[in-house]
Structures are given as structure tokens and as C-alpha cells.
Simulated assay, not measured.
Amino acid sequence: MHNSLDLPGRPEDTRVVVAMSGGVDSSVVAALMKQQGYDVVGVTLQLYDHGVAVNRAKSCCAGQDIHDARRAAEKIGIPHYVLDYESRFKEAVMDRFADSYIAGETPIPCVSCNQTVKFQDLLKTAKDLGADVLATGHYVRSSASGNKRAMYRPTDLDRDQSYFLFATTQEQLDFLRFPLGGMPKSKVRELAHEFGLSIADKPDSQDICFVPNGDYAEVIRKLRPNAAEPGDIVHIDGRVLGKHEGIIHFTIGQRRGIGVAAGEPLYVVRLDADAKRVIVGPREALATRKVFLREVNWIGDTLLDEGAEFEIFAKVRSTRPPAPAIVRVENGTTTVELTSGEAGVAPGQACVFFDSDTEEARVLGGGWIARTERVGDWQVDSPQQEPQVSAV
């Protein structure tokens, strides 16, 4: 068992800092590392405070979770630190989330959190604490590949978190360990009971941690009080169908609750933040063939540089399996052509690269979707097509 982290030296001479959120997964990681003889230190991040009135049952990193993490550390018998990252979290995750939503995007703050607070700031803190590695409860696998580490989808594909970790850099990946990647969630719960952890049956967090009731618009109203400006709901053919109370209430692909009556099912196909317009159309108008990426992270073996063209498998939403695609770099811009197309792809989401669509797929990186190109005559995101959606 002592080689479970792929580290030289004896476990007792190896310091493992465990990111403890107060949930089952990270608590079991800490207990496993302690059982295997490592020098374990638990660290919990205080990211925000909802106030007493909010039900935190489905979200993480609030007051109750800090208490749960502390109790787990006591039971396991390891030192435990709580770090106040509230201002950093607000700046790097919450503010970015609000600005992205106001710009008509559909952001994924969990990726931003891993990218900044957890795998930059916490990783640095772990090194300051003398850690050899930082271990987390994420469901992904990593293993040595030559002189570096590679990331793969986990054994339990129902828990696959690789989509949310696409921005992990090679340097971070080499320092991180994911001890749960090779086991199903049921086994993790079983171990939690064996270790006598009081959180063994605690429900998994499902919501975005600072949006505990799923009401994004309300959170954005608090962060950006003047964000919800009214505007027009416009059909893709230029007809004005009605009014809306702010584009922050809509997401690409949305069908219900649009607020206009029409003789056909309508979907939100584009959010025009500058003109405060919600553009709607038939389902066919959602079909996306090409995405343009920004802030691309690549952790494959071959360089992704100017002129590169690779066949990959891409995921443009966390719940979909990887599908065939081609990634290209031309004139400094990274694009991904989705071979079969995909419906309802939104700017602000992630496009994540894999080397196959199998259970053993390796994560090659990914990027944030800056804009999309539609199939056929529905090029509503292309400037030359703008007259089709007439200004009103």
C-alpha cells in the first residue's frame, strides 16, 4: 500500500496535505493516507459565509462543513488548519462568475475555483507546509507517464470530475494526487463507515457552493445590483416577440420560462449582452459545429502549437460523453470542430479534450468557449450574419 501515491521514500517521511471540504470523499482520503502511514495534514478553506439563514445541506465549504472537516480530522488523528480564502474566492471565482453571466455567458465557477483558489493558492500553501503532495477527493485518476503525470477518467464514470479539472497545469498535476480515482463511490461510503467518520452518510454537494438554492440571478443581483437591465426578446428572423427583465435570467438552450407565446417551440439561441437582447429560435438553430476557445490548457504529450491539428474527443458539457472532434491552432486561435455537432453550446462553458471516448480516456486539457459557430443558415454568432437578427 505504501506506493499508492507513486512517491519514493517511506510513508512516515512523506508529508501529504489533504484538502478537506467536510464531505465524505476528502475525509476518506485523509483517513486512507493516515492508515497507509503518511504524515498527513488536513487543510480546509473558508470560502464564503452565507449567513445563518441559508440551508447549506447541498453545498460545500460553509460553516457546517468546516465543523465536519475538523471533527473528521480529530477522529483520524491529524492536525487540521482552516484557511480564510474568502476575499480571494470572491475576487477569483464569484466576481468572475457574475461578470461572465452579465456578458451573456454560462460560466462554470467550479472550474475557476480549482484553477485558482484550490490548485494555485492551496497548492502553494501545501508546499509552504512542507508537503510532498496535495491530495484531494476528486474522482479522476492520475499516474506516471514518462517523467511526468497524466490524468485519466475515473473508474466510477458516474462521478467523473475530469471535465472540471481541465485547467490543471502539468506542474500542478505532478504535485497532485487523487486517491479515490480507482474506486466507486459505494466503496468510499463503506470506508467512511469503517473509519468511524460521522459524515459517512452525508449527502453529496450538488449546487454551486455560493448558489445554494440554484438561484443564479439572485446571487448576481447581490454581487452586481444594476446587472438586470430589461430588453427585447427577438426571434432569429428579426421579429420582436416580447420583453425580458435581464439576460441574467436566461441560458443558451433554455426552452421553458422564456415568457413569450409562439406557434412553435422556441429556444434561447443567443444572448446579446451589448444590445440587451435574448435571441430565440427553433431547436435546429442550437446546432453547433465549431467552437473558438480562449485560455487553452494543454497537458498532452505532443505540443499544441501554431499549425497543429489533432483528432481528439471533446466534451462541451459535463454530462455528455466525449465525442469525436478536431482541434486546430491557426493564427494563434484554437478552434474545435465537433464532428457530429452539438446542441446548445454556450460561451463561458468549457470544451475539454480527451484522447478517446473509452473509460480509460486520458485528459489532454481544454479551454473556455469564447464563441460558437452554428450549423447551416443559423450563424447567429457570426458578425456577417448580424443583419439577420435586425437591430430594434
Score class of each variant (00 low, 15 high):
residue 6 D to G: 11
residue 6 D to V: 05
residue 6 D to H: 05
residue 9 G to K: 09
residue 9 G to W: 06
residue 10 R to S: 12
residue 11 P to H: 05
residue 12 E to C: 11
residue 13 D to K: 13
residue 13 D to S: 13
residue 15 R to N: 09
residue 15 R to H: 06
residue 15 R to M: 07
residue 17 V to F: 02
residue 19 A to F: 01
residue 20 M to W: 01
residue 21 S to Q: 03
residue 22 G to A: 09
residue 22 G to H: 04
residue 22 G to P: 01
residue 22 G to Y: 02
residue 23 G to D: 00
residue 25 D to M: 06
residue 27 S to A: 15
residue 32 L to A: 10
residue 33 M to E: 00
residue 34 K to H: 05
residue 34 K to C: 01
residue 37 G to D: 11
residue 38 Y to H: 03
residue 39 D to S: 08
residue 44 T to A: 13
residue 45 L to H: 02
residue 45 L to P: 03
residue 47 L to I: 04
residue 47 L to M: 03
residue 48 Y to K: 07
residue 49 D to N: 09
residue 49 D to F: 07
residue 54 V to I: 14
residue 57 A to F: 14
residue 58 K to E: 06
residue 59 S to N: 14
residue 61 C to E: 02
residue 63 G to E: 03
residue 64 Q to C: 08
residue 65 D to K: 12
residue 67 H to T: 09
residue 70 R to N: 15
residue 71 R to P: 04
residue 71 R to C: 07
residue 72 A to E: 00
residue 73 A to M: 10
residue 76 I to D: 00
residue 76 I to L: 01
residue 78 I to V: 08
residue 78 I to L: 00
residue 80 H to Y: 01
residue 83 L to R: 13
residue 83 L to V: 15
residue 86 E to V: 15
residue 86 E to S: 11
residue 87 S to V: 10
residue 91 E to I: 07
residue 93 V to L: 00
residue 94 M to L: 05
residue 94 M to Q: 04
residue 95 D to P: 03
residue 98 A to C: 12
residue 98 A to Y: 02
residue 98 A to G: 13
residue 99 D to S: 14
residue 100 S to T: 10
residue 102 I to T: 13
residue 102 I to L: 03
residue 103 A to H: 15
residue 103 A to P: 06
residue 104 G to P: 03
residue 105 E to C: 11
residue 107 P to L: 12
residue 107 P to T: 13
residue 107 P to G: 15
residue 109 P to H: 05
residue 110 C to R: 03
residue 115 Q to M: 07
residue 115 Q to F: 09
residue 116 T to S: 14
residue 118 K to E: 12
residue 118 K to D: 08
residue 118 K to R: 15
residue 120 Q to R: 08
residue 121 D to F: 14
residue 121 D to S: 09
residue 121 D to K: 07
residue 122 L to E: 01
residue 123 L to C: 07
residue 123 L to G: 09
residue 124 K to S: 11
residue 124 K to A: 13
residue 124 K to Y: 13
residue 126 A to T: 02
residue 128 D to G: 13
residue 129 L to T: 07
residue 130 G to N: 06
residue 131 A to F: 04
residue 133 V to C: 11
residue 134 L to C: 06
residue 134 L to N: 04
residue 135 A to F: 05
residue 136 T to A: 13
residue 136 T to F: 07
residue 138 H to K: 07
residue 139 Y to G: 12
residue 139 Y to P: 06
residue 141 R to Q: 12
residue 141 R to I: 10
